[in-house]
Amino acid sequence: LAEAAWNKSAFDAKTLDTAMSAMGAGKPVESADVQITAPDIAENGAVVPVGVVSNLPNTEQISIMIEKNPNMLAATFDIPAGTLPDVQTRVKMGQTSDVYAVVKADGKYYMAKKEIKVTLGGCGG
């Protein structure tokens, strides 16, 4: 159905480094042209909205990774010509963690990260 086969080794990876190398991303450089839209504090750790926009020319792929999840790679989106490098999904988070957006553009990999807090809740002003 999809053009590329499901990347089992990347989705099974237990560390960020292994997942990156299984994706062929190596050590991507941090880029201000990759933007993550996500809440600072998750309302519900089971459903955390994460959006990624890439301003890098020729963006081919966008991946979302959650550092503290047992399987850190959540999703990979292949962006064909004519589709905007602007995707949103919702992910599970068991605890406070950095969320990574990894972007492949012109054959090179870039990334951005943002901390999303998962809290016990209950307080009030």
Binding site: D40, I41, A42, E43, N44, G121, C123, G124
Partner: peptide, 16 residues
């Protein structure tokens, strides 16, 4: 939905 029970507004999302 974090400071107060989320089940009271289960279909509403807030955030900054």
């Amino acid at each position: 939905p974090i400071a107060n029970p989320r089940w009271m507004t289960p279909n509403w999302s807030f955030g900054i």
